[in-house]
Design a protein around this nucleic acid. Structure first.
Lengths: 194, 194
DNA sequence: GACAAGAACGAACGTTCGTTCTATTTTGCG
DNA sequence: CGCAAAATAGAACGAACGTTCGTTCTTGTC
């Protein structure tokens, strides 16, 4: 790892956390430079444009998300245990960043901002929903879910619970919400069982 | 209605729609002045500060929300029909603004921005959740829901579905999502029935 | 230890931000 | 109509924005 790659990673780490709080558009070059104790121009040289910075932050987040949420879940037993693991990992991922899930934040920010950032976000979100779909399918194969269920419907309801958790958790600072969400998850699981 | 109040309303109307798309922080004085064909200073005189503008936009939205979502629902029969009406109104409210529900947008934007705007948003969201709770309670009284249900749990699950709808609708432009959400709502209702 | 390449810097660019003046136009009332 | 008050405009402010430039400091290699 060269020196440049090293500092770039540190920038992305701090930028990611900052973005989870105030949103990608408010991770200004100046503010990020101050937070990393660098000069604006020195930092800027790593990205050539703000759009690149935003994309790099999201790609970096995507990597962490994959490593921290999806992959570990896929290592658990297929079926309901895997679903529970995925949710647990997602909640933990969301609590790790000080502003919650960066993708939820950025999806709201960029839904009406055409460009490469939004394009990336749409792909990421589709991929995430597809992940939920697959995990439901593997639950069907494992015999934990009925065979006639609607996978997309499950993915939607599952993600909705996470989004509900996210709002209660980030804006309202609701303490009990993880239990609420877990209770809702169990009810959701039960509805899809044979 | 004096001339000043009239133009102020027009400003708020356009500002509200703009805010639903790009977020309250990006409704800049300059951009809003251009959109309303006014001068920056002429527009600014109505609000004295940007924070006032943001608060006024949210208060205006709160009024429309109350008139368009809550009040009409309260005029329908208590119980399940009222729940369905509330959801229907919320979806319609969300589709009316070109960027979706302003409160969902702003809640994400301001969750880590201390100030009067966030304070208002937290109160508004608490009030909305309380509205969901009450409507569930009236369903209990009407005999549509069991007596032993957890009202907060219902409110959470209900709002989660709306938030899921919101993301699919605004970012992913998913066409089928209203049906999905309706199906999930019916399943949710059934779980709480006697 | 010399030396090219890479990394970080400070200063400045034009633009836009929110805000504050003063001046001008428009409004509504006697 | 006349005139104060209200409403809008125009110009300017310091600060911050993203970006560019040329320069300096730091690497790693021969």
């Amino acid at each position: 790892m060269t020196k440049g790659e090293d500092t770039k990673l540190k920038i992305l780490e701090i930028g990611l956390d900052m973005a989870s709080q105030v949103g990608l558009e408010f991770v200004t070059i100046g503010a990020l430079a101050k937070a990393t104790r660098m000069s604006k121009s020195g930092l800027f040289a790593h990205f050539q444009s703000k759009e690149n910075l935003q994309n790099d932050i999201l790609r970096y987040a995507g990597q962490l998300f994959s490593e921290g949420v999806v992959v570990p879940a896929l290592r658990t037993d297929a079926g309901i245990p895997r679903i529970r693991a995925l949710v647990r990992n997602w909640v933990e991922w969301t609590s790790r960043l000080s502003g919650g899930c960066i993708f939820v934040q950025a999806s709201n920010d960029f839904k009406d901002r055409p460009g490469t950032v939004r394009e990336f976000l749409m792909l990421q979100q589709e991929a995430w929903i597809d992940c939920l779909r697959r995990i439901a399918q593997s639950a069907v194969r494992a015999g934990d879910f009925r065979k006639d269920i609607d996978l997309d419907q499950f993915a939607f309801e599952m993600y909705s619970l996470l989004l509900g958790f996210h709002l209660y958790y980030t804006l309202l600072k609701n303490e009990d919400i993880e239990q609420r969400q877990q209770a809702a998850l169990e009810a959701l699981i039960q509805r899809y069982q044979p």
